[in-house]
Every structure is written in C-alpha cells, then in structure tokens.
Design a binder for these strands. Structure first.
Lengths: 237, 237
DNA sequence: ACCCGTAGTATACACATGTCTACTCTAGTA
DNA sequence: TACTAGAGTAGACATGTGTATACTACGGGT
C-alpha cells in the first residue's frame, strides 16, 4: 500500500459513485438504503461498513469529492476568462457607472456565466447532489455544503479583487455580491441542467441578474462615498 | 356530509400534518414510509390508501395546503405594508436614482423584508417543506412548487405595479427583479428559521441584496431609456 | 327503516432492510 | 516464507415495509 492510502480503495469509490448516481436519479441521500447502494455498486451489502459508519459519513465523503472536483477547476475557469477578457478589453469603453465600464462588465459577466453553466452541465451529478443536499434534511450535510459554498464565495471575491474587476467596491459589498451570485448560479444551474431547451434563456437571466447586482452595488457604493450634497445635486442620472 | 366534502376528512388532515412534521424533523418526503406516517398520525397504516394513491399524491396535497396557507396572507401582508408606508411616505425624499426615491425604497424594503421573515418564522414547517422539496428529488413535487413560486412572483410584480412602487421599470425588469427576490427570500428564510441568533444579520443581508437589485434595475433602466449621448455626457454619477 | 358509500381497522404475507458474526482472499511487511 | 491487516463475501436473524383482502362503524339520503 505504497501508492494507495492516498487513492481511495476500489470499493469505496464504487460505493460513492453508486450513491451519487442513485441520488441524482431517484432520492435524497438519507433515503437510500445501504443494501441498495451496495447493489448498485455491484458489491456485497456489508462492504459499506468497511468504509463508512453510516449514511452521513458516506455523504460527507461524497461532498468532499464533489467539492474537490469543482473548486479548483471553477476558479481556474474564472481566472483564465478574466485574464483574457481584461487584457484585450482595456481598449473600449461604454457608459460608466461609478467608475466601472458597464460594457466591459457585461461582457465579463456574459462569458463567465456561460462558462459556469456549461461547466455545471458537464458535471450534472456533482451539482445536483450539492444543491439538493444543501437544502436537504441532514444538518451535517447542509453544514458541510454551506461551508463549501462559503469557500466558493471567498474564491470569487478574491479573484475579482486581485484582477481588479470592480475596484471601487468595498470588501463587504463585494463579498455580499459574490455570495448572492454564487447562490443564484448554483440554483440556476439546476434549471440549466434539467431544461436543455431553455438554456439560452436561463443564461440570459443569470447574466441580467448579475449585471443588475453589480450595477446596483456600484451605484450605491458611489452614492455612499460621495458626500451627500454632491449626490443630491447630481440628481437623477 | 353537507359541511364536509369541502373540509378534508379527519384522517386525511392528520396524515398530512404527520408527514409535514416528519419531513421537517427528519427526512425528505420520498424517504418517509407509509406506515411511518400512519404511526405518527396515530392511524392504521392502511388509512393512507383511503386518501392517497402514493407518496407524490400526498406531497401534492401537502403542497397545495402549504401554498394556500402562504399565498394570500403573504400578499395581504405586502399590500398593507405598502399602503401604510407609501401613504405617510410621500413627504420625505432622499437621493433619487432614475426617478426613485432611494430612502423610501430602502424603508419599504426594510419593512417588508422583516414582515416576510417573521411570517416565515411563524410557519417554519410550510417554508421548510417548500424549499426542501423545491430542490428535492421528486420531479412532480418540484414542478408543483416551481409553479407556486411563479405565482408568488406574479403576485409581487402585480402588487408593486398597482401600488406604483418602481413606476419607471419596464415589466420584464420588474418581473425578473421579483423572481430573484422571491427565490432569495425563500432560501434566506431557511437560515432565518434555523439560526435564531443571526436573524438580524440575515434580515440586513436580505435588505441589502434587494436594495442593490432595485438600484441596479433602476440605474440600468434609466441608462436604457435615455439616449446614449445624454447618458455618456452624464458620465459618472 | 333501510341502504350504501366513506373512513377506518385487523390480519396476513411476501419481501427488503440493517446489521451481527464468521469466513476468505490478497498484497505488503517482517 | 509466513504473518497480518485491510477489503470483500456469505449467511443468518430480527425487524420493518408495502400492500392485498376482508371486516366494522357510522352518518345521510331515500
């Protein structure tokens, strides 16, 4: 067991994959039976106990896997998109709000939203289990997934900060923006996965929602940082 | 059976209440057993079959009940709040964005968010089942709940329209705004119900998110309706 | 007064489930 | 080469489950 120990045992992986498949296509994790999972994995019922104490433990293991499968790739996707877009995007400019180039933001949002949703569509099981159990009945799984979501949010906020998108937004507003965005994107990805015929519309909705949020945050931020008098004089835009 | 027929049979209600209680405190609807529900309701297992063909049918019945319990009251709450706030609110004014009085909007949002969350906290079972099964494994329950959510959204949009909050927003943007708001409020209500010690912070988050959305929508709308030249000249606000 | 449909109950059965104990196989270590 | 721990299997058992069939209680309409 030199190579092993890092690589999970054969049966363990099989069980996790079986459970994941079953969850996606039939019921919530807690609703699955131990024998049922073993059967789906082509293993003896008792093999389960060699690797997990109970269902929640299986759930946590699956979630850990799922998060590992999503977190870094998602981040890489975002950073690559940001870097290529911002590089060539320095040129043009549209109407600007609170110092942000709206056109550029819209473009960035459009691209990253698409990348995210297509990414989700390629890993439907991971996303479905995540969202399902995030709102599921097991407190321990909910907690694990909430923490995972918080990490996604932190990643996004950090990336937006280091790449200087939305430079004038204060940290709190940026973080809040990411929180809502991540939450909504995960939920929307369910629809995106499920309703192939409405994908374009869902992407447009997501896009519009995020642009609205960013615009709102930018506007409010500028209102807040300019002194009241100036703001009032500025009147309606 | 003169009065009855409109009123559900005794046992039927008992079963629905039992299932609701079990879902909230243990597992997803599909994961419940027929005998288990009967037991919780203090009835014979077979009584279930007198009223429901299967679990999904029970689920649909519960959902119908839950929606009835929420829809009208929620609407009434909103309309009352809007009417009292807008009446006395005509006076003051703060910085305005795209023709909206930001202070007034903030106040309306603050009050209605609180009302909503407190309303949710008083009907935790209804909200929890709703959100849980909205992301659950049963397609038929998901569909029913999605339609219910769509109705909530339509209600909200209609109310905002007849009360002339956000008058300059076009229908599409208004509808989209309501969609996101309702979705987020339901999800946030889970946290609100569960984490009593963080209620104020959750309410503040919800408030800030909605104000951001409204501000963004208003800003974008005004950008869109003014011709480009004027917008560009206006520059940053 | 009678009937009948509705709601609820009792019993029964075949089967699935969680989990215990004991066995086997295999790959790595001493 | 022998030993051992980890991974998988086999069989067994008590318990729980879905559901079929058949029974009872009752309230309203004729």
């Amino acid at each position: 067991m030199s190579v092993a120990k890092s690589v999970a045992a054969h049966g363990k992986t099989l069980l996790m994959e079986a459970a994941l498949a079953l969850v996606v296509r039939t019921r919530s994790l807690q609703a699955l039976g131990i024998r049922e999972i073993g059967r789906e994995a082509g293993l003896n019922p008792n093999t389960f106990y060699r690797h997990f104490k109970n269902m929640d433990e299986l759930g946590l293991a699956i979630i850990e896997n799922v998060v590992n499968e999503l977190r870094e790739p998602l981040r890489k996707l975002r950073l690559e998109a940001l870097d290529t877009l911002l590089e060539k995007g320095q040129i043009e400019s549209g109407p600007s709000i609170a110092g942000f180039d709206l056109q550029q933001i819209h473009q960035v949002v459009r691209v990253t939203v698409r990348l995210f949703l297509e990414f989700a569509a390629k890993r439907p099981n991971a996303f479905m289990l995540g969202v399902r159990e995030l709102h599921g009945a097991s407190p321990v799984l909910r907690k694990a997934l909430r923490e995972a979501m918080a990490n996604f949010v932190d990643d996004m906020a950090e990336d937006l900060k280091t790449r200087n998108v939305l430079p004038t937004l204060d940290d709190a507003r940026l973080h809040q923006l990411c929180k809502v965005t991540i939450r909504e994107m995960f939920i929307l990805s369910m629809d995106y996965i499920e309703h192939k015929d409405q994908r374009e519309q869902i992407a447009l909705e997501a896009e519009s929602m995020i642009v609205t949020l960013v615009t709102g945050a930018a506007t409010l931020s500028s209102l807040q940082h300019n002194e009241a008098g100036k703001v009032l004089r500025a009147g309606e835009i």
